[in-house]
Simulated assay, not measured.
Amino acid sequence: MPRLAETAYTEQPWRIHEFTKDFCVEDVWSFRTPGAGPDDFPLMLAAMRAAGGPAKQPWLVRLLFAVRWKLGAIFGWDKPSAGVGERVSSLRDRLPDDLRDAPRGPDDEGMPLKAVYELDRESARELANKTVHTVMHLGWVQGANDGYELRMAVLVKPNGTFGRLYMAAIAPFRHLIVYPSLTRQWERAWRDRNEVKAKDEEGESC
């Protein structure tokens, strides 16, 4: 199953552990990348970006996001005053010097999470509103079958009781609809990237 135990994240030597001790691990998810090697994390990130963000998801996922943004507009959950740099400080303010000088990765207007840092085998993005301050951590690890795979950990710091209730309320939607759809999108992105690479190599050999 794509969903993993919390230890699949906490026992890895990720740099993000150094400055997110006040966050809780909400979800850990795996994504299969057959044939991937230890240095393919940047290629996986590029494939994911090429596959598009929430706008490329199936209609049900898009509907859930549309409802969420509509509720946020009605109740003021997503006002700039509730975001990163306003209600909460960015994780970038906590980074040690070597990570602060590392590439951040590109931001995309279609992706609400903003880049914190991007390394050879891990990256982090963050988002804050009136409900939570959340971090999406992506890591590249050796899987059970000797190949490498992508893992995503979602870290959260709920904004009081309301934030905790909000996270509990959306958990079924994340686990049953959003994450499975994301799994299909990202795993397909990896497969499609391999197909394009194979075609390019065939063309070069002719």
Rank of each mutant, 00 (worst) to 15 (best):
Met1Lys: 02
Pro2Arg: 03
Pro2His: 03
Leu4Asn: 02
Glu11Phe: 00
Glu11Tyr: 00
Glu11Cys: 09
Trp14Pro: 02
Thr20Ala: 02
Asp22Glu: 07
Asp22Ala: 07
Glu26Thr: 06
Phe31Lys: 00
Phe31Ser: 09
Thr33Gly: 12
Thr33Asn: 09
Pro34Ser: 03
Gly35Lys: 03
Ala36Leu: 00
Asp39Leu: 15
Phe41Ser: 02
Phe41Met: 06
Pro42Trp: 00
Met44Ala: 01
Leu45Ser: 10
Arg49Pro: 07
Arg49Tyr: 14
Ala50Ser: 13
Ala51Ser: 14
Gly52Ile: 00
Gly53Thr: 07
Ala55Tyr: 09
Lys56His: 13
Val61Lys: 05
Ala66Asn: 07
Ala66Ser: 03
Trp69Val: 05
Ala73Cys: 06
Ala73Leu: 09
Ile74Val: 15
Phe75Tyr: 06
Gly76His: 03
Asp78Asn: 09
Asp78Thr: 11
Asp78Met: 09
Lys79Ser: 15
Pro80Asp: 00
Ser81Asp: 15
Ser81Asn: 02
Val88Pro: 13
Ser89Thr: 05
Ser90Glu: 05
Arg92Ile: 06
Asp93Met: 05
Arg94Val: 08
Leu95Arg: 05
Asp97Lys: 02
Asp97Asn: 07
Arg100Glu: 15
Ala102Gln: 02
Ala102Lys: 04
Arg104Lys: 14
Arg104Leu: 05
Gly105Ile: 11
Gly105Arg: 01
Pro106Leu: 04
Asp107Gly: 08
Asp107Ala: 10
Asp108Val: 15
Gly110Thr: 10
Gly110Phe: 14
Gly110His: 10
Met111Asp: 13
Pro112Tyr: 01
Leu113Thr: 15
Leu113Cys: 04
Leu113Tyr: 06
Val116Tyr: 07
Glu118Ala: 11
Leu119Trp: 00
Asp120Gly: 08
Asp120Glu: 13
Asp120Asn: 00
Asp120Phe: 03
Arg121Met: 08
Glu122Ile: 11
Ser123Leu: 05
Ser123Lys: 07
Ser123Phe: 07
Ala124Asn: 08
Arg125Ala: 15
Leu127Ala: 08
Lys130Met: 14
Lys130Leu: 14
Thr131Trp: 14
Thr131Phe: 12
Thr131Arg: 15
Val132Met: 11
His133Gln: 00
His133Phe: 04
Val135Arg: 02
Val135Ser: 14
Val135Tyr: 09
Leu138Trp: 01
Val141Phe: 12
Asp146Ser: 13
Gly147Ala: 12
Tyr148Pro: 13
Glu149Asp: 09
Glu149His: 03
Leu150Phe: 06
Arg151Ala: 08
Leu155Asp: 03
Val156Gly: 14
Pro158Arg: 00
Gly160Val: 02
Arg164Thr: 13
Ala168Met: 13
Ala169Pro: 15
Ile170Leu: 13
Ile170Arg: 01
Arg174Pro: 13
Ile177Gln: 00
Ile177Pro: 06
Thr183Asn: 10
Gln185Trp: 03
Arg188His: 14
Arg188Phe: 11
Ala189Thr: 01
Trp190Val: 09
Arg193Ser: 13
Asn194Pro: 12
Glu195Asn: 12
Glu195Cys: 06
Val196Pro: 15
Val196Met: 05
Lys197Gly: 09
Asp200Gly: 12
Glu202Tyr: 11
Glu202Arg: 14
Glu202His: 07
Gly203Asn: 05
